[in-house]
Amino acid sequence: MTRPLIKICGITRMRDALLCASLGADMLGFIFHEPSPRNVDPKIARAVPVGGPLKVGVFVRQQADEILRIMEECRLDLAQLHGGHDVDTCEALGRDRVLKVLWPERYDSAASFEADVERFAPHCRHLLLDAGTSGGGHGTAIDFSGLDPERIQSSWMLAGGLGPSNVVAAAALHPDGLDVNSGVESAPGIKDETKLRELFSLLRNEQ
């Protein structure tokens, strides 16, 4: 099995960014949302070297102009849209630079979820399917049973309570990527080296 892309989100410390890069992370996520316990100091996000894992900014309330300003300031590669951003925002940022979050459990039917998948897929690099009905980083595991990967005809990533205990099961759904946050932490915004090493070891063994 080909290993999916791995994004480690909620990075707040340089030491964690460098550790994740050394373990083989493909993306590092930096949250720009002040109420979050994982809200990052922009100086740290900017200081993380470019040329390694892609640097992803997570945005909730910001509009396109502010997102673009932060992306330039912090030398970010991608924007993860975690709020009510629409297709126009995706286009303003550039489709190859956008991860658009959808919450499958928010929809009252498979048809309404698939309609949003079709609406956003042409305007973003990846769709990111998260647990719950809003927010993120809460540790709630996504309900795998409600996902039908065969019906998602676009590049997609999976998030929601992922960690060493369930990452192999998540990878078995063959997403293009996995987004890991609270499942590899010792406290919000503080990554746990043992959990990270176990996670990457499990995924390497599945290849």
Rank of each mutant, 00 (worst) to 15 (best):
I152F: 06
I31G: 02
R3D: 15
G137T: 12
L127T: 03
W103V: 00
N39L: 04
A172H: 09
T2E: 14
N166A: 10
A92Y: 06
M14S: 13
I152M: 08
G132W: 00
M1T: 15
I190A: 14
Q80S: 01
D26T: 03
L162A: 09
F200R: 02
L99E: 00
G137V: 08
T89C: 12
V117Q: 06
T194L: 15
L81I: 02
R69W: 13
L162Y: 04
A47R: 13
A172F: 08
W103L: 01
P4E: 13
L18N: 03
E66F: 12
A45W: 00
R38Y: 03
K195Y: 08
H138Q: 15
K100I: 03
A92R: 03
V117R: 07
R97K: 01
S134V: 09
F120C: 07
E34K: 05
D16L: 02
A159Y: 02
E198N: 12
A115C: 05
L102Q: 01
R197A: 08
C20I: 05
D16H: 04
G137K: 09
G57N: 11
V58N: 07
I152D: 03
S165R: 12
V167D: 10
L203C: 05
I67F: 12
D41F: 11
R38K: 01
L147F: 04
